[in-house]
Design a protein around this nucleic acid. Sequence first.
RNA 1: GCGGGGAUCGCCUAGCCUGGUAGGGCGUAGGAUUGCUAAUCCUAUGUCCGCAAGGACACGGGGGUUCAAAUCCCCCUCCCCGCGCCA
Length: 420
Amino acid sequence: MLDPKLIKENPQIIREMLKSRNIEFDLDGLIESDKQRREFILKTDELRKKKNQVALEISQKKKEGQDATKIFEEMKEISKKLSGLESFQVEVEKKYMHLALTIPNLVHQSVPVGKDDSANKEIKMYGKIPEFNFKVNDHIEISEKLNLVDLERAAKVAGARFYFLKNDLVRLNQALIHYALEFLAQKNYSLVQPPYMINHSSMEGAIITDDFEQVIYKIEGEDLYMIGTSEHAMAAMHSGEIIEGKDLPLRYAGISPCFRREAGAHGRDQKGIFRVHQFDKIEQFVFTRPEDSWKEHERMLAIAEEFYQNLEIPYKVMLLSSGDLGKISAKTYDIEAWMAGQNAFREIVSCSNCLDFQSRRLKIRYREKTNEETKYLYTLNSTLIATSRVLVSIMENFQNKDGHFSIPSVLQKYMGQNTI
RNA sequence: GCGGGGAUCGCCUAGCCUGGUAGGGCGUAGGAUUGCUAAUCCUAUGUCCGCAAGGACACGGGGGUUCAAAUCCCCCUCCCCGCGCCA
């Protein structure tokens, strides 16, 4: 959600944002309903004022033992008028909230303007792309041959884009998780294992309405939604709270499975475990003061980079363009890891500063001193690992001529072996 | 699932029975007093509308009764205690 003051005082900034994001949005409708909303507040406030005055009068008369029945009529009329006005106000407020909750976030000035991912900017490339003197296999071929993944039976049991992870790949998945958690714990992150289902108001605070359709699974007959990432639960964790400045920044390392509908992804990455409905993820989530947020954003990216350097996986850092940017994010870096089987860099980390967009929806504020005005804090999130994609990258980049693959050295101690 | 108790401003709490302007404490900030500190006293300290003056809202959420609801009635959520069931 954007600052309502911006809608009223500086809609030009919002118009520019929509243009740079290449998004159609009924901004005039939002401005108009915001105006109407204010008018109704003025009107109902006026009437309530009168009501309070009359109520006071009655109470005084009663105290003095006088007859007040005559004023009751006046009061009745005011109440009737008020409840009529209030029902209109509810309608106007509904329309306003719908639009206010649908509009995307502002775009930071450092974000390259462009209509889609072709305008993304490469910031950095790290590592040497591995070369092979044999025919390179993709992760599907490797995992099938070594009996590490069963896609057919997963399709039978659950459907497309599911998988049974098997044997040493289960252990490698756990090793990754283990290492990633220790890595973030050492960086002073608090470890968090959140609820895997959250209610509607929490989810609405963390995501934009479209995502309910596109990514989120709903539990039938309950006010519960499967999280698409621990970010959703962690964002809502402090909803309605006022955080003390001395406790900032709050840095959390969330671990959870992630559930995604992948609606609209038909045909893309159809096979294997690269794009699936369920995977494990370790996520960085940070609440900061606005003025610290950009420094924190870079820090989170640096932490993710360090992690892939330790894994010895070559990667590129991309700065997403305005047209490719997620709607809740003001600036996003992606890390794309090399996947030898696809002969390409593919997205593995997404690191975003969401400004006060989520905290406004969730009413998460802070203040330095208890008598100070409260301010909305900023939220940032970044993947550390989405395990299924890291597994793909490891299998493909570390593959050997004999069809087996090596385990990155930092993970070997968790596995007790150096190849699979 | 059953029975009982609860949810009031950042935190703690009064008010609920008996409906009539939501009060106090802590914390924090400013001021007064004091040689300094402590203590004491005064003021400020939620959200929204408004340029302001000012006003409205806010007692877990929703409905109802009433001229009027924190207060009475109904439904829901969550927390605590006990019982039951359970990995």
